[in-house]
Each structure stands twice: as C-alpha cells, then as structure tokens.
Simulated scan of single mutants.
Amino acid sequence: MEAEALARNNQEAESKVVFDLLEKNRNPSYITTTATGAAYIEKILDSRRLELWGEGKSYLAMKRKKAAIKRGPNHLFFGGQTFSYDDDRLSMDIPQAEINNNPKLK
C-alpha cells in the first residue's frame, strides 16, 4: 500500500524502492519494473492481489478505488456477474436488534 500511495502522489522513484523490497523478498531474482504511470500502478495492484489472495482485501480496495468487480464463473452465487462498488447488494445492514440495544448507535 505504501508503494501505491507514493506512486499516486507522483513519487514513483521512492515507490519503486519500496516495491522492489517487497518483490525481492518474495522472489530474489526479481528485476525492477520499467513500467511507469498507470501501468506501474496496475503492476502494484496485481502484486497486491497475489500477495493478499484470500485475505478479503479486494472488497475494501474496490470501495476505495470506486471500481467494479467481476465474480468468476466458479462462484455458487452470482457467478460471472459484475458488481459496481456502490451496488446495494455489497452493503450489509446493521440488524435492527443491534440498533435497538446498542446505545452507541442511537
């Protein structure tokens, strides 16, 4: 996330130092990318997806970037469907009993 933040704040050289450290820790033979701009940021995001696969981070990243996500065809529910970041089906309601019984929510 640090590498992405630096890249998005026009500090690409500093970002590549951070990104290289992560990538070389994963793969000692990693060679610094020559990608720049949007292509470089996409490389960072691809790396994050690989590193955090199965950790549940894609939902928050999708919301933060206001992106859409397409579920793979292997999903039991909504397989192959695309969801926008603001789709109501992605928001979870607080149960009414929790609202009624939690004074911090009133």
Rank of each mutant, 00 (worst) to 15 (best):
A13Y: 08
K106N: 10
Q81Y: 03
P95E: 10
P95F: 06
M1H: 14
K65M: 10
R8V: 00
K57C: 12
A5V: 05
G80L: 05
N9Y: 01
E23R: 15
L22G: 08
N101K: 09
R49S: 09
K63W: 08
R8E: 02
T36N: 11
M1D: 12
P28Q: 06
A7I: 03
P28N: 08
K43T: 04
G56W: 07
T32L: 03
K57M: 13
S29N: 08
G56D: 07
D86L: 03
L21Q: 15
W53S: 13
M1Y: 09
F78L: 06
A39E: 14
A97K: 12
D86V: 06
N101Y: 14
L76W: 08
N9K: 03
K106S: 15
E2C: 13
D46I: 05
T32W: 03
K43P: 02
W53D: 15
L22Y: 13
S58V: 08
F77K: 10
N25W: 11
N25P: 13
Q11S: 09
T82C: 01
R49C: 05
R89I: 07
I99F: 15
E55I: 11
L52T: 01
I69W: 13
M1P: 13
Y59K: 08
K65Q: 14
A67L: 11
T34Q: 01
E4V: 09
N9R: 00
F78G: 04
K24S: 11
T33Q: 03
M92Y: 15
P103I: 02
S29K: 07
A38L: 14
T34E: 06
K65S: 12
E14S: 06
K43I: 07
V18I: 09
Y30R: 06
K65H: 11
N25A: 15
E42I: 04
M1C: 09
R64F: 06
F83L: 05
S47R: 10
Y85C: 00
I41Y: 01
T34M: 01
S29W: 11
G80K: 00
L45T: 00
A35P: 05
A7P: 02
S15F: 00
A68E: 09
N100P: 14
P28A: 06
K24I: 10
K66S: 15
Q96A: 08
Q11F: 01
Y30K: 01
K106P: 09
I69V: 14
K66E: 13
G79Y: 04
Y30V: 04
E23W: 12
T34R: 01
G72L: 11
D46L: 01
D93A: 15
Y59N: 07
S91Y: 11
R89A: 14
D93Y: 15
G79Q: 05
K70W: 14
D87K: 07
K70N: 09
Q11V: 00
I99D: 12
